[in-house]
Computed example of a mutant assay.
Amino acid sequence: MKIFKLSAITSLFNAGFYLATSLIVLYFSDIGMPEFLIGLAMTLARLSYGLASMFSGAMADRVGRYYPMLIGFILGALSMLFLSLFRSQYLAITMVILVWVAYSIYSPAALALVSEVSRGTATSYGWYYFFLTAGQIVGQALSGNIIKLGGYGAAFVSGGALSLISAALTWLWFRDEEAKVSVNLLEDLRKGVNILFRNRYLSYLAVALSLHGIGFTMSFTFIPLVARLDQGMSEPQIGFALSLWSFGNLIATVPLGRVTDRIGGREMLIYHLAASSAVWWIYPFLKDEMLIYALMLIQGFVGAMDLPARRLLLVGISEREVATAIGSLDSITFILSSLGNLMAGLTWYMGHWAPFVIGCLINTLGLLILLKMGKSEAAYSS
């Protein structure tokens, strides 16, 4: 029962998060930010997520799951609500950074809680991501229409309200999960860094997924701008396209989680990286609306291969410090992959196709590392 309560809470927050951030690139553009500054803003947001994850994962192992979840949801709500009040470029960037930090604070704790209230299999993570993605679909599908009806402020306020509901439900359902609170940020940072260095397999995995993350962020950053400038799509159409991506992820996550339990996390990640390069390469050259929708749906299937597979690997690597392992891997991959946002802004002027194609090439390097790691090394590290 707790897994469904947890999934409902995080699904609501995810709906609010994507209501506020799905089309944030268009909002930045509309308040006068050049593409380079947009790329820099998204770099700072992902970098902040990565740095905060290093602390939050270890904190969740030390103080319990309740407080990080509650703090993350409250911070997310306040940041989204304040975002609705500002038109200043730099204040808007600051609030978006805080929204991402809020996500990084709650996420490792919630993921660790999944392993505690279930069997910790890829299938259980698949169900969790099923509900998480359902919230994402709602947020993305509604974002364009809410912006069209009430402006960006309406989307930000709606997102903040959903985050507040998540905080209230966390207090109602999970306050018995609280532990004795003691704040030791340096110790949390030391634990997060240490687990990366002492586990060779986790280190290789971090490098491979960081390269994958750079490729992804290079490709993903300007999807809304390419859709508006080159493909002639409106905000509701862009929101619908992104929701199709999430819908494909939704319907494929649980079945692919079961496949991952059978074939292994490393093998599924190999398929994921290979398919990702193909999809990203194609996108900027499409002009037909229906083909764009179809590709977004396929990208959802491809994306569903990722997170249950990497979470399954992490549970095997460190069962006693699973939140620390999750936080550390998320931290290093987000810190390094944040470079992709900046690189997207720099390469945008080479042609709107350039961030996508270069991102594919970088992603392929991550695929080669995964292939080189081999099954025997995975077994050794587990």
Rank of each mutant, 00 (worst) to 15 (best):
K2P: 08
K5P: 00
A8V: 11
T10H: 14
A15D: 00
G16I: 04
F17E: 12
L19V: 04
A20H: 03
I24G: 06
F28Q: 04
M33P: 08
M42A: 08
L44T: 07
A45S: 12
Y49N: 10
M54V: 11
D61K: 13
V63W: 06
Y66D: 01
M69P: 05
G72R: 03
G72F: 04
Y90C: 06
A92K: 04
L98H: 06
I105H: 00
I105Q: 02
S107E: 10
L113M: 13
T121S: 15
S124Q: 11
Y128R: 03
F130H: 08
F130I: 03
L132R: 11
I146T: 03
I147W: 06
A154I: 05
F156D: 04
V157G: 05
G159F: 01
L162K: 02
L162I: 05
I165A: 12
W171H: 14
W171V: 09
F174M: 05
D176M: 05
L186G: 11
G192M: 06
V193T: 12
Y204G: 10
L205Y: 08
L205W: 05
S210P: 10
G215T: 02
S219D: 06
I223N: 01
P224K: 00
V226H: 04
V226R: 12
V226C: 04
L229W: 11
S234T: 15
Q237G: 11
I238E: 01
G239T: 06
W245F: 15
L250F: 12
L256E: 04
M268E: 02
H272L: 10
W281F: 14
F285I: 12
D288L: 13
D288F: 06
D288Y: 10
E289H: 11
L291V: 07
Y293G: 06
L295W: 02
M296V: 02
Q299C: 05
A309R: 03
L312R: 10
S318G: 15
E319Q: 14
V322S: 05
V322W: 00
S328N: 06
S338T: 06
L342G: 13
G345Q: 03
W348S: 08
Y349H: 13
L361G: 08
I362V: 15
L368I: 11
L370I: 11
L371F: 12
L371Q: 13
K372H: 15
